[in-house]
Structures are given as C-alpha cells and as structure tokens.
C-alpha cells in the first residue's frame, strides 16, 4: 500500500507557493500606480472645464449677434475676458473654486509668413511655472484687427486662436 503521509505537507507546500507568488505580484505591481492616476484624471477634468467655458463664452445670445469671446478679443479687453472666464470656471454651488488663468492670442503675420502671438491676459502671481497647467484653445473669427495690438498686418478679416492656460493654485 502506498504511504500517503506526505499529503498534508504537499498541500502546505502548494499553499506557500501560491501565497509567495501572489505577494511578489502585488509588490511589483504597486510601484508604478499612483502618480499616473493622480495626474491624468484632474488634467482631463480641468481641460474639459476650460473647453466648456470657452464654448459658453463663444456662444452669442441670439443668432446673428457677436459672442462675448469675440468682443473681448476684438477690443483686447483683458479684465473683461479674465472676469468672465474665471467667473464661469470658479462657479460652485457653495463657495468658489481656486482656478487661475492666463491667455494668449495667436495670429498669422501674413507679410512675414510667421505665426505670432500676443498676451491677452497676463498670469497673476500664483503662476510660478511649476503648476500642472492645461491648455485649452478656441478659434475666433474677427472682422478686422483687434484694437490696441501693434505689429499686425493691415486690418483684414482674420481667424485667430485664443489659447488659455488654466491651473489650480
């Protein structure tokens, strides 16, 4: 008759092996997780928020009217743009969020065939260059040159790209 006294030891050995393999797997898979999950999700939310705010600002009240965004860009209205944008961004049911922004306008300089930009909203003193900022953009079509911007081509209808840098401070 075959002696089966070793059965319990075999089972123990198998159990120990499974436990060691699982431990090794969990330890190895823990190392790379947190940073990735930390940054992408808030970035995605912030980017979507900024795009939605620009889309709202670019929507005129009625058909045929000019949108707020186009007015702010064509009159180069820094405070108007900043207040409208941050007002939408920071709106919460209770209290206010703590988002900050700066904005540039990119245009094409036809005679030198260069892409140039000028600041529309300067960053405030929360901007240190180390923020995890996201960039959102919106096309704006203008009837002529924006007022108060030097160094552009002669006035013509033009499409410019409004680029907003958005960060939480």
């Amino acid at each position: 008759m075959v002696n089966d006294r070793g059965q319990l030891y075999t089972m123990e050995g198998v159990a120990a092996g499974v436990i060691m393999l699982l431990t090794a797997y969990i330890v190895v898979s823990t190392t790379s997780v947190y940073t990735a999950g930390d940054t992408h999700i808030p970035d995605m939310q912030l980017e979507q928020l900024g795009s939605d705010v620009l889309a709202m600002m670019d929507t005129p009240d009625t058909k045929g009217e000019v949108s707020d965004l186009e007015i702010f860009v064509s009159t180069n209205n820094e405070t108007g743009f900043k207040n409208a944008f941050l007002g939408y961004c920071n709106a919460k049911a209770i209290g206010a969020d703590n988002l900050h922004m700066s904005a540039n306008v990119t245009y094409r300089h036809a005679s030198s065939n260069e892409i140039r930009d000028y600041p529309l909203v300067e960053p405030d003193n929360t901007w240190t260059g180390r923020e995890s900022a996201v960039r959102v953009t919106r096309w704006v079509e203008l009837e002529g040159n924006p007022s108060g911007v030097s160094g552009m081509d002669p006035s013509r209808p033009r499409a410019v790209l409004v680029e907003v840098l958005l960060w939480r401070a």
């Binding site: 990119t106 245009y107 790209l161």
Partner: peptide
C-alpha cells in the same frame, strides 16, 4: 483674397500651435 487669408490663418495656426 480675404477668404483665402482667413483659410490660410486656420491652416497655418493649426499646424503651428495645434
């Protein structure tokens, strides 16, 4: 020329900035 300039704006700025 005006519409062509706007079209060129969109194409050139898209390539450069987007």
């Amino acid at each position: 020329t005006e519409s062509k300039a706007v079209r060129d704006d969109i194409i050139a700025i898209s390539l450069e900035r987007k």
